[in-house]
Design a protein around this nucleic acid. Structure first.
Lengths: 134, 134
DNA sequence: ACGCATTTGATGACTTTGCATTAAATGCAG
DNA sequence: CTGCATTTAATGCAAAGTCATCAAATGCGT
């Protein structure tokens, strides 16, 4: 049994699990408390606004957001219900739908983006800290 | 707006999201198909067997496994239902419970551990690959 | 000893997610 | 054009997670 050989691999994975969990939870908490957004909700808005093309099929998004197609569909539905995005059908291929941020969506994102970046900076910095102790 | 300054931070986070999602999904799929275990289930068994102390309070585990206390409680319940761990009360402090792997649990873990390591090795290697292209 | 705050794990209610399926739209062979 | 496979997004349902709450056990001041 090559248990020792796998050690570094397993540690790397566990470190990642740990950092991921801490970061995700912190984002969830801060974004929710301060802006009424879930982490997934923000992530979608962030992508949507970054790639500012008016054309945005749902399926294109599913590559960026790491969710199943159905979860993504419901996520969009939630954001639509909250008035942060709109769903519109495409004239050329009426199977596709366009998802675009509303004005409210852009505003909410603009408001939340600094919180998002701050949390990232903080958690990642705290993670590197132990390496520089003393 | 210091958008550019945050760029590397955001990219790092997104890379992590991506790698984490791919790895977790691969583990979920492989462990489930080949050994009837979820990723969380394996993770718990793995920790449980690694720290072989007979004493293992639930709360000690919640630090390792990145789950809420309630989720952990239900995860243990599932594993118990499947006969992979046993819950036993502690004589000294009867609020605590011990969770220990059964023989079946040890066997299942032994069977699954190589799959787990292989998936880690594969996904992580694939992730580094792009850096060495050509 | 007693009362009360604290700790610990379990449970109810709800949310989010994934899988499987469905419905609609399109593409394409014949 | 017709019929059928394919693609795309939505939906029913069950699994799994979180938060808030609960009951039991303990600790501790008086």
């Amino acid at each position: 049994m090559a248990a020792d050989a796998d050690r570094p691999l397993v540690c790397e994975w566990r470190d990642m699990l740990s950092l991921h969990a801490r970061t995700w939870c912190a984002l969830e908490r801060e974004l929710n408390e301060r802006h009424g957004l879930g982490a997934s909700e923000f992530e979608l808005l962030d992508r949507l606004i970054e790639t500012d093309k008016p054309k945005c099929r749902v399926q294109e998004l599913s590559g960026d957001i790491h969710l199943s197609q159905s979860a993504l569909s419901r996520l969009i539905a939630r954001l639509e219900r909250d008035g942060l995005v709109t769903r519109g059908m495409c004239a050329e291929d009426r199977r596709n739908i366009f998802v675009s941020p509303t004005e409210a969506g852009r505003a909410r994102h603009a408001e939340a983006v600094s919180t998002h970046r701050a949390v990232l900076a903080e958690v990642f910095a705290a993670n590197r800290q132990p390496l520089i102790v003393r």
